[in-house]
Design a binder for these strands. Structure first.
Length: 260
DNA sequence: ATGACTTACCGTGTAAGA
């Protein structure tokens, strides 16, 4: 089972780039972030024509997440528990039925949090607290489960080309990194680091100032796996070449394979 | 260097992203 995560920065602007990548990469499941569309505006037929069922959790203009799956998908829920007042569409989860076992797949778009300090950063940290609570519940179930998406967290200095440029940024502040570690350290496997060590691995390059051409990137899209999912983990890769194509998102896909 | 791009909106500019 191949599962990918991709922050597409607008589904309408990315229809061609996304379907081109889908046709080549052939993932069984994709979690999408920043669809920037209401549910009714999402071009489901693009994906249904390719054999994927589509589940969206959208909102107008901003945010928005979705799951595409060509395997059976059950028990889809929308919204991260813990705050009934939160109207931002940043969380969707569902159970994918593999040939061998079922996997609970959670797709997330963690708040950016800039400028920090400030109310947006407070929202980011509060959201991470709620994420931790959901993560604890996933672990308690003792089943294959994963949380994948745009975490807006640069875990360590080695995850940025120019770490000094991010020192005071909400993506890299010590408090952000500590909140991320508190979740990972509950017992999750960060899939990419299970296979690849050291600097030079990025999932995002800013549109500005020729960041892609200078390889001035950051690694902020991650997969966290429960122990039962980690037992099935076969590979994890970043499709970085996508960033050099026509009309790209500023993020690229990251994917894993599971023996599930 | 209050910059640089890119997206979506009902807009002829603004907000948000990271």
């Amino acid at each position: 089972m191949k599962i990918a995560s991709f922050n597409i920065n607008g589904i309408k602007a990315r229809a061609q780039a996304l379907t081109d990548w889908l046709d080549e990469a052939q993932p069984d499941v994709v979690v999408l972030q920043e669809i920037k569309s209401v549910d009714e505006g999402f071009p489901c037929e693009l994906f249904e024509d390719r054999g994927y069922r589509v589940e969206t959790h959208g909102q107008k203009s901003f945010n928005g997440v979705a799951i595409l799956s060509r395997l059976p998908l059950e028990d889809v829920t929308r919204g991260l528990p813990g705050d009934d007042e939160d109207e931002q569409a940043r969380w969707i989860e569902g159970t994918v039925i593999g040939d061998k076992t079922a996997v609970r797949v959670c797709g997330l778009y963690l708040p950016n949090g800039n400028p920090a300090p400030g109310p947006k950063y407070d929202y980011k940290l509060a959201w991470m607290e709620r994420l931790k609570a959901r993560a604890e519940a996933l672990l308690a179930a003792e089943e294959p489960a994963l949380m994948a998406g745009d975490y807006n967290v640069i875990p360590q200095d080695e995850d940025a080309k120019r770490p000094e440029a991010w020192r005071k940024d909400a993506l890299a502040l010590p408090e952000t990194r500590a909140a991320f570690r508190r979740i990972v350290n509950l017992g999750f496997t960060e899939a990419f680091r299970a296979f690849h060590q050291g600097p030079g691995h990025y999932t995002f390059w800013d549109y500005q100032a020729g960041a892609w051409n200078r390889d001035d990137g950051i690694r902020i899209d991650h997969f966290l796996l429960t122990p039962q999912a980690a037992d099935l983990l076969g590979d994890c890769q970043i499709d970085r070449d996508i960033r050099g194509r026509e009309k790209p998102s500023d993020h690229v896909p990251i994917w894993i394979t599971l023996d599930a």
